[in-house]
């Protein structure tokens, strides 16, 4: 690892799906070891931001600096190899693969990934269901699996999209613990969340996204004094 404190810097990022212009100049940065949340309403452009970082949108302009390298023109499969792991909103568990095949699918992108035993210790359910077809897993199991499979690869920057969505409170709580442990292990994390109460205790900083750009930045210790601002943007 090089000594750059900044893992990701996004500057004036515009992204398009066909004719529709979704991101209108996103600007933000994420430091190594930080957990940053992108908050905002549905359709504000948070998922698209993650996809644009990964090279999964249509045309994009601006700058995405990853680990000190400009990747705006890179194809998606090369970007992952800079140590980026992606957990998509719809979880993306492959129905035609078993749980174990899903876990083993993403190639190693850096050294220092978690061992399979360590992962099964973190998510005991997955160990029990390793032979099950991806489509047979419960929503919670699918979410755990979607997280687990990017921990194996050595990725140091995790892009997690709405991981608490649609899950039972117990499982959401479990996911919160997992995120805390990953922070302790030094992972850099971007959480896209609607669930403010889930994200707030985990995040070092929060960005509020609206109309495809950053509307506000809120530090961990500013949450109370900026409560009205938060209410205004999120309706919490």
């Amino acid at each position: 690892m090089n000594g750059v404190a900044e893992y990701l810097r996004v500057t004036d990022l515009h992204a398009f799906y066909g004719e529709s212009h979704i991101l209108h100049g996103m600007d933000f940065r994420v430091n190594r070891g930080e957990c940053v949340t992108l908050l905002g309403r549905n359709g504000a452009g948070r998922t698209t931001t993650l996809k644009a970082i990964l090279g999964l949108t249509g045309r994009r302009t601006g700058s995405v600096m990853l680990n000190g390298r400009e990747v705006i023109s890179w194809p998606a499969h090369r970007i992952a190899h800079l140590g980026v792991g992606y957990c998509p909103e719809e979880r993306g568990i492959y129905a035609s693969l078993s749980a174990e095949e899903n876990l083993m699918l993403p190639p190693q992108v850096a050294s220092g990934g978690m061992a399979v035993d360590e992962i099964y210790a973190m998510f005991p359910n997955l160990g029990e269901r390793r032979k099950s077809q991806g489509s047979r897993l419960s929503g919670g199991e699918q979410q755990m699996l979607a997280m687990a499979r990017i921990l194996r690869t050595g990725a140091q920057l995790l892009l997690l999209d709405e991981i608490s969505e649609g899950l039972a409170p117990v499982i959401v709580q479990k996911l919160g613990e997992v995120i805390r442990r990953l922070k302790e292990k030094g992972f850099t994390i971007i959480l896209v969340e609607q669930n403010f109460r889930f994200a707030a205790p985990l995040a070092d900083r929060m960005y509020i996204v609206e109309h495809g750009r950053i509307a506000a930045e809120i530090g961990k210790d500013e949450v109370e004094q900026k409560q009205t601002l938060l209410n205004e943007y999120l309706g919490v």
Partner: peptide, 25 residues
């Protein structure tokens, strides 16, 4: 085989498979 798993994954969800660092094209 693992190669086949890549193939099945790329058939099912090419975008995500590519985001994992697999050269789908």
């Amino acid at each position: 085989t693992p190669l086949g798993a890549y193939l099945r994954a790329a058939t099912e969800n090419p975008q995500l498979t590519q985001a994992f660092g697999i050269n789908v094209p």
